[in-house]
Design a protein around this nucleic acid. Structure first.
Length: 275
DNA sequence: AATCATGTCAACCGCAGTGCG
DNA sequence: CCGCACTGCGGTTGACATGAT
């Protein structure tokens, strides 16, 4: 299997690797170790691009790679990890024993995703699929778009186009809405999906968030209101730009200047704490 | 037996993140 | 701070394999 070989405009060979090429690549890496991928092909006597060599090594030639059929245990692990990490295949691969991200991704797309759908589970949210659900986008002003009615796609998750961190994520027990493609938005979506799929642990989750909030909000009226709001919204979490920063113990004076990376880091800490 | 649909998997492409000068 | 080069990641493609009709 594989693709036919051809040469691109720069004379680089593309497509399926031959046994001879594999041998050259392995021999070179065994002798010199991994170094600069860009210059490696020339030094190894290969008419390939550095990217192609890297991919071949990581996904095929690297020692210890497990190939072939996935065991039921592995499949279960992938599904569980996907529920938490989403399509972060590299992160999922790190949790699996010697499986490549490409392998996991292929197996998910060709098999597991369809199997979940067939069983009435939305493969994106890992929630039961409910048909004919429609939601209206909140925070339309901050999103810079007119009110948007967003319907479930055939895959059972929401997709619309408002931009901006402010309209990050809203989640109900019935559905899932993702409006921003940013890494933080996706991460929080995963967090929200994880929370939704673990309703019985909601108290624990709230405690973690509230504990963190108390440290900055006990003298803050708005914080008290938010505490009450959380209590009222067991099943409906809305994350916006400001709230995300507030939850992460970021000083209000620094809302506008705190790098998203810091927020992302904090989100990861919470995820680690939860799962 | 032939054709079509679906599954599998290797590889490519484009983009984002990171490091360095 | 900026631009460039490089790396790594996720989405997608393409070709073969297999199963269904």
């Amino acid at each position: 299997m594989g693709r036919k070989t051809w040469f691109d405009d720069d004379g680089m060979k593309k497509g399926e690797w031959t046994a001879e090429e594999d041998q050259k690549l392995v021999a070179y890496i065994n002798e010199h170790g991994l170094c600069d991928w860009r210059s490696l092909p020339e030094r190894a006597g290969l008419q390939r691009g550095g990217k192609s060599c890297r991919l071949r090594w990581l996904n095929y030639l690297r020692p210890g790679i497990r190939r072939g059929k996935f065991t039921p245990q592995e499949e279960e692990a992938i599904i569980k990890l996907h529920a938490v990490l989403g399509n972060r295949w590299a992160a999922i691969a790190k949790e699996m024993e010697n499986r490549t991200d490409n392998d996991i991704k292929n197996h998910w797309n060709s098999c597991l995703k369809k199997r979940l759908s067939k069983n009435g589970i939305d493969p994106m949210t890992h929630e039961p699929i409910i048909n004919n659900l429609t939601v209206t986008t909140t925070n339309e002003e901050e999103c810079g778009s007119s009110p948007t009615n967003t319907s479930l796609t055939t895959e059972g998750h929401f997709s619309s186009s408002p931009s901006g961190l402010a309209c990050l994520t809203s989640l109900t027990t019935e559905g899932h809405f993702s409006s921003s493609p940013s890494g933080l938005a996706r991460l929080l979506n995963k967090l929200a999906a994880g929370i939704a799929s673990r309703q019985h642990d909601l108290d624990r989750i709230k405690n973690i968030l509230l504990d963190r909030k108390i440290t900055i909000n006990d003298q803050d009226e708005e914080g008290l209101r938010r505490d009450q709001k959380i209590g009222e919204e067991d099943d409906f979490l809305i994350w916006d730009d400001g709230e995300v920063r507030r939850y992460m113990d970021i000083d209000p004076m620094e809302y506008e200047t705190t790098p998203y990376d810091s927020v992302l880091y904090e989100s990861t800490q919470i995820l680690d704490h939860l799962f």
